[in-house]
C-alpha cells in the first residue's frame, strides 16, 4: 500500500510534467502537421533563460518571462524559418527543426558551458507539503502538478469556449477552408507555434529548477514526448493529458516490479525451460522501465493509430 501510494503520487506528477512539454507539441502537430524536433530544445531554453532571469527578477517573474521569451522565439522560428520551408513539404520542415535543435543545443553550450547550472528551487519553496508513510512530499512537486493542471484547463477552455479557440480549431481541421472564410491562418499558425513553444519553455523553467539544468536536457527528454503525443493521438490535447499520466504511472510503477517473463512461464510450469532460454525472457520489468513506453507506442500505432483520444486517422 505504501509503495502503491507513493508510486501513484510520483507517477501522476511526472506525467503532469510530461504533459506540460507535450501539450505544445501536440497542438503544433495537430495544426501544422509538423513533428517539431526542436520542441524539447524550447524546454531547455526555458530552463536556461529562467536561470539567467531569476538573478535579476526573482524566481516567479523569471519563470513567466522565460516562458514569454521562449514563446517569442517559437514565433520567430515559425515565421522566419518554418514558413519559408513549408512549400517544400513536411520532410523539409521536420529536418529544419532537427537542424534548429542542433543549433540551440550548441548555442546553449557556447553561452552557459558544458556543466549543470546551479539553478535550484528557491529555499522558500523547498519544504515538505505533507508526509506519506513517513516520506516527505515536496511542495514543489505539487506546484509543478498544479501548474500543469491549470495549464490544461486554461488551454482547454480557450480552445472550446472562445472565439479564438474556434478559429484555431477550424484552422486545425480545414486550414484552407478557414482561410477562405477570411481568417488569417498564417497568424493563427504563428500564434499556436508561439504558445506551444511558450508552454514547453514554462515546463523547462519550472522543471529545470527541480531536476537539473544542463545542456543535455533536451536530449534526455528526447523522444519520450513524441511517445506521449502519438499515444495520446496526434493533435489531441486530452489525449496528451491521458497519455502523459499513463506513461508517468508506468515508469513509476515499473521500477518496483522485479518480475520477468520467466515468472510468467513459471505460472504454467515452464520455469525451467524459460530459464534455460534466458535472453529476453530473463529481463526484469524494472530494468525495462525505459522500454515500455516505446512498446506501448508501437502497440497503439498498430492497433489504433489515431491514438487513445485522437479523432483523425
Amino acid at each position: 500500500m505504501e509503495y502503491f501510494t507513493i508510486s501513484l503520487f510520483n507517477g501522476v506528477v511526472y506525467g503532469l510534467l510530461l504533459f506540460m512539454v507535450s501539450a505544445g507539441l501536440t497542438l503544433i502537430f495537430g495544426m501544422m502537421g509538423v513533428l517539431n524536433f526542436a520542441h524539447a530544445s524550447f524546454y531547455m531554453v526555458g530552463a536556461y533563460l529562467a536561470y539567467s532571469l531569476q538573478k535579476i527578477f526573482g524566481f516567479w517573474p523569471a519563470i513567466v518571462l522565460a516562458a514569454l521569451l521562449v514563446g517569442i522565439l517559437g514565433m520567430v522560428v515559425e515565421a522566419f524559418f518554418l514558413r519559408r520551408v513549408h512549400r517544400y513539404g513536411h520532410a523539409h520542415e521536420l529536418l529544419l527543426t532537427f537542424g534548429l535543435a542542433f543549433i540551440i543545443a550548441e548555442l546553449v553550450k557556447l553561452f552557459y558551458g558544458n556543466y549543470p547550472l546551479n539553478y535550484r528551487v528557491p529555499d522558500a519553496l523547498n519544504f515538505a507539503a505533507f508526509q506519506v508513510f513517513g516520506t516527505d512530499y515536496p511542495v514543489y512537486r505539487l506546484l509543478m502538478g498544479g501548474i500543469s493542471i491549470g495549464m490544461f484547463i486554461l488551454i482547454y477552455l480557450l480552445l472550446t469556449r472562445t472565439r479564438v479557440g474556434i478559429v484555431v480549431r477550424s484552422a486545425i481541421y480545414r486550414p484552407r477552408m478557414a482561410e477562405a472564410l477570411g481568417h488569417n491562418v498564417p497568424l493563427v499558425f504563428m500564434g499556436v507555434f508561439g504558445v506551444g513553444a511558450a508552454l514547453a519553455g514554462l515546463a523547462g523553467a519550472v522543471a529545470g529548477a527541480f531536476y537539473t539544468t544542463n545542456p543535455n536536457m533536451a536530449l534526455e527528454l528526447g523522444v519520450i514526448v513524441f511517445v506521449v503525443v502519438v499515444v495520446g493521438g496526434l493533435g489531441s490535447l486530452e489525449g496528451a493529458m491521458l497519455a502523459s499520466l499513463l506513461i508517468g504511472l508506468i515508469s513509476s510503477f515499473a521500477v518496483g516490479i522485479d518480475l520477468s517473463l520467466i515468472d510468467f512461464f513459471g505460472l504454467f510450469g515452464a520455469r525451467e525451460w524459460a530459464e534455460s532460454v534466458g535472453g529476453v525472457l530473463a529481463l526484469k520489468i524494472s530494468s525495462l522501465s525505459a522500454t515500455i513506453p516505446f512498446a506501448l507506442m508501437l502497440l497503439i500505432l498498430l492497433v489504433r493509430p489515431s491514438g487513445l483520444m485522437g479523432e483523425k486517422s
Binding site: E2, Y3, I6, S7, N10, G11, Y14, L17, G134, T135, R141, Y211, N216, E220, L221, G248, S251, S252, F253, V255, G256, S286, S287, S289, A290
Partner: peptide, 21 residues
C-alpha cells in the same frame, strides 16, 4: 541492489521510494 537505465531517467522518485522501503 538496483540497476537502472543509464542517463534515461528524469524522475528518480520511484527509486527513492524503493530506498525508503
Amino acid at each position: 541492489k538496483t540497476l537502472h537505465d543509464t542517463n534515461k531517467i528524469q524522475d528518480f522518485s520511484p527509486y527513492v521510494a524503493k530506498i525508503k522501503a
